[in-house]
Design a protein around this nucleic acid. Structure first.
Lengths: 201, 201
DNA sequence: CGAGTATTTGACCGTCTGGTCAAATGAACG
DNA sequence: CGTTCATTTGACCAGACGGTCAAATACTCG
């Protein structure tokens, strides 16, 4: 049969990856167990291993998929648009990404925290190229006097640091703000203010 | 003998905590092993357990000690000083803390990432009080028109997010900046610029 | 239906891990 | 020196963990 990917295979793999996201993002790679993974996926352990050869394979597949979903919305920075509008749109996109995909954010954070044993090559490869490209656009804006000068790479990293913080340190954010407030809504206002001032000098 | 803590006990406990910091900050609680811990401390496993009853006890002792060293330099915000100078000094203090104690920073980050199973009470207790106090000082400055208005809690969290980022995501920072640059020096300049603009509107 | 393949599972295994224990060693002191 | 207490250790254990395997079950299609 030429059919290489049956409906059931797609379904099981998807469920395993979903479960993996849930488990790895909370327990970390070391803390997660095959039993827990299988349980969260609603499968028996050997059944899970029928679809992925090992725990590490699930983790790898997850990280691989992550980088796509994660970096893709960040590629668009139109050099010809209004710099402040463009940049603020970028900030909002990144913030919404953290808000809507907190597990992905934490999974990524956990990897990098441990020294990125798996993701290191991607970081100094694809990621760096992406940042360099955006830094060039921003540099252009600054050179043209359209936004206040600053260090573009650090500016971009500031966006990451600030947006991811709300996802990765959600517990701390809630503890500090209290339960009655909406961190994400406030974050959007705050970051808008902050980066507007940063860019307009 | 009235002496309840011999020289050798202090030494061993200190070595264990030092080893724990090294190991837990890289491997996380789940990833760390007693053997690895004992090895890093230069002790045999049962010998380590002679000083701490369990792996968790080492972790707990570490987190407990952490909060002191970690939050203490952040208490000083003089309401009567120059707001921008005061706040920038705060930022620098926090940045140097992250630079000089990256393992502590990562240990803390790992805890909070996993939902702060241990530290949660402290976060909504001591930490929140500390932040509230500082937020009040900042609010006062804003009300007096001495700095541009913004949300004080988020302003403070921005400092944390940005400074810790350079320690917790050091691998990513290096990957993005390349090996020839000095992240910490650049970070200090960048954060000075950023928060100056933020505060002066 | 029946043959053949895809999927699922219970039982099992070797290894690692956190932790125990009794015995050995070392230090202090009269 | 001998006694006493603190420290250290090799040997050990029970449970968890990652992973295997052969057998059972479900599914597909002629």
């Amino acid at each position: 049969m030429v059919n290489d990917d049956t409906r059931i295979q797609r379904d099981r793999r998807a469920r395993i990856l979903e479960a993996g996201l849930e488990v790895f993002s909370v327990e970390g790679f070391a803390g997660a167990t095959l039993d827990g993974l299988a349980n969260a996926a609603g499968l028996s352990k050997p059944n899970l291993l029928y679809y992925f050869p090992s725990k590490e394979a699930v983790y790898l597949a997850l990280l691989e998929r992550l980088l796509d979903t994660w970096l893709d919305p960040l590629r668009v920075l139109d050099p010809d648009g209004d710099p402040v509008v463009e940049f603020l749109a970028y900030v909002r996109r990144k913030l919404h990404l953290a808000r809507d995909y907190p597990r992905e954010s934490r999974l990524f954070a956990g990897e990098v925290l441990r020294g990125a044993p798996v993701l290191a090559p991607e970081l100094s490869g694809d990621l760096r190229k992406l940042v360099d490209a955006q830094a060039r656009v921003i540099s252009g804006w600054m050179a043209a006097g359209r936004i206040a000068p600053s260090e573009p790479h650090h500016l971009i990293m500031s966006v990451w640091a600030l947006t991811q913080h709300y996802a990765d340190f959600a517990v701390q954010v809630s503890a500090v703000l209290g339960d009655t407030r909406d961190p994400w809504e406030e974050a959007e206002a705050h970051l808008t203010t902050m980066f507007t001032r940063m860019l307009t000098g």
